[in-house]
Computed example of a mutant assay.
Amino acid sequence: MAQITLRYIPFKTDVAFLQIKQTEVSGIPLYIIFFYIHVYSAIFVLLAGFTQFNSYLLKKRPTIHRNIGRLYVFTILFFSAPSGLFIGVFANGGFYSQISFVTLSILWFYFTLKGFTSIKNQNITQHKAFMMRSFALTFSAITLRLWKIILVNLFHPAPMDVYQIIAWLGWLPNLIIIEYYLYKQSKK
């Protein structure tokens, strides 16, 4: 993900993924701004999210857990999810891809907000469950790219077909796995 993000430094409008988004870049003035907000904030969210389930931090360094958690929540609620929503409206692959990315952004915002409000209300169990859901959606940045590599190398579908498929595969299986895990935990 760092390598992907570094392609967009310095700020350019015709590099990597943006090469196929020139209609949006030239026709929608805010697109490039929201795109870069999303790309630049995502790397921080991923790094912050990876630390939050570390048992050492949770038990021995709760202040670090809280501070990184606040960065994670703030970045998603004010940068990553809103910018994802905006660029999701213009996703490649048409209507089905757009619905997927818009839904992903809304759920990402909601789960993160619920995780934050749950801990403010001192409901640790609910906080953990919602933050796991949130990170499952954060992690879609990685799983989407993995699915793309798998699908392209195995099946060689048309590019827009790939977008329609990975738009859903990027996050839906992640969320199903977390829901299954939470269900199994509730039965213990």
Rank of each mutant, 00 (worst) to 15 (best):
V89C: 10
S100T: 00
F101W: 05
G115P: 12
S118P: 03
I119Q: 07
W108S: 06
T103G: 04
I99N: 06
S118I: 10
G93Y: 05
L113W: 06
V102T: 04
G93Q: 12
L104N: 00
G88P: 00
T112M: 05
V102M: 09
H127R: 03
F111C: 08
F101H: 02
K120R: 13
L113F: 09
H127D: 01
I119A: 12
V89A: 10
N123W: 14
Q122I: 13
S97K: 02
S97E: 04
N123V: 15
Q98F: 00
Q98W: 02
T112L: 05
L104K: 00
T117N: 11
T112N: 04
I124L: 15
N123Y: 08
G94T: 04
I106N: 05
N92A: 14
Q122P: 09
F116H: 08
Q98T: 08
G94A: 06
F90P: 14
F101V: 06
L113A: 02
L107A: 01
F95R: 08
W108Y: 05
G93L: 08
I119E: 11
N121W: 05
T125P: 00
L104W: 01
F111A: 09
I106H: 10
K114Q: 08
S118Q: 01
I99M: 13
G94K: 13
N92V: 13
S105V: 02
W108C: 06
N123C: 07
S105R: 09
A129I: 00
F101Q: 04
F111E: 03
V102Q: 07
A91T: 10
Q98M: 03
T125M: 12
G94Q: 13
L107D: 03
A129Q: 06
Q126F: 15
Q122E: 13
G88T: 01
F109M: 03
G88Y: 12
S97T: 08
L104G: 01
